[in-house]
């Protein structure tokens, strides 16, 4: 499977998941499981673990809100009827199942290409050069910001302005930390743009490094795409006939 095929497949599947219900969702679950087993293999457990890590807190949160506090489903609220916690629970299960499938799919697609570096993945995409450049720079600067947090935190702890443990002083000096992180990031970026990158010709090399993406969709890409569209259409037809 190619990165372009994976992106198109994931986009089509996500739209289908959002628009489907009942049998459609069940069929899409089967499709995503089939996709992850055939494309990711035994590492599918890793995708499952990550999807659970993302979704478990969210599902718990929705349970607290709908079942614990509100106590009725949105449809019951709209109809202005008493409502039950069971209906609220059913609603949360349906929403959580839909979101879980989306998260699992994204994880499976990411896992499919985890042997590639972000640079090689982005290079293979059929996207405008500016968009590719922006994606790579953003990924790089997320790390820069993470480093800036570490540096600023260490410096302020060493200066005695904040403490490592939770304390009231940290609340008072929190803003200094935020400001220091921003200034550290700015200084790093400025230094790179003025000194490091011109010497190394980084931006000049980035252009050719991101050239690519002319790869056509393969048979395997088309197979998953057609299967997704067929399943989505079948789910909709079933819903329409049984409405």
């Amino acid at each position: 499977m190619t990165p372009n095929g994976a992106i198109v497949f994931a986009a089509c599947a996500i739209v289908a998941i959002v628009l489907s219900d009942g049998l459609g969702i069940s069929l899409l679950y089967a499709l995503v499981v089939l996709f992850s087993l055939s494309e990711v293999g035994p590492r599918v457990m890793g995708c499952l673990r990550r999807a659970v890590l993302v979704m478990a807190p969210l599902a718990t949160f929705m349970l607290i809100i709908w079942v614990g506090i509100v106590g009725r489903a949105p449809a019951e609220i709209a109809a202005d009827v008493e409502g039950t916690r069971e209906a609220a629970l059913f609603y949360v299960v349906v929403v959580a199942a839909r979101l879980f499938l989306i998260v699992f799919l994204v994880q499976a697609v990411a896992m499919r290409f985890d042997h590639e570096t972000p640079l090689s993945f982005v290079r293979a995409l059929n996207a405008p050069p500016g968009a590719k450049r922006l994606a790579i720079l953003t990924l790089s600067l997320i790390e820069t910001l993470r480093n800036a947090v570490d540096r600023a935190h260490t410096a302020l702890v060493a200066a005695g302005i904040i403490t490592r443990a939770i304390s009231f002083r940290n609340i008072g000096s929190g803003w200094i930390l935020v400001q220091t992180v921003w200034l550290t990031a700015i200084t790093t970026v400025t230094a790179r743009m003025r000194d490091k990158w011109p010497i190394e010709n980084t931006l000049g090399l980035l252009g050719p490094a991101l050239d690519g993406g002319k790869q056509r969709l393969t048979f395997r890409d088309w197979f998953w795409l057609v299967l997704t569209l067929t399943i989505a259409a079948a789910g909709h037809a079933w819903s329409y006939l049984h409405a």
Partner: peptide, 19 residues
């Protein structure tokens, strides 16, 4: 419009939003 400096600023601000 998308000079290198602005592109880097956009990426930095997007990273800030994300974090």
């Amino acid at each position: 419009m998308f000079t290198t400096q602005r592109l880097i600023l956009i990426a930095l601000c997007a990273a800030l939003n994300f974090s």
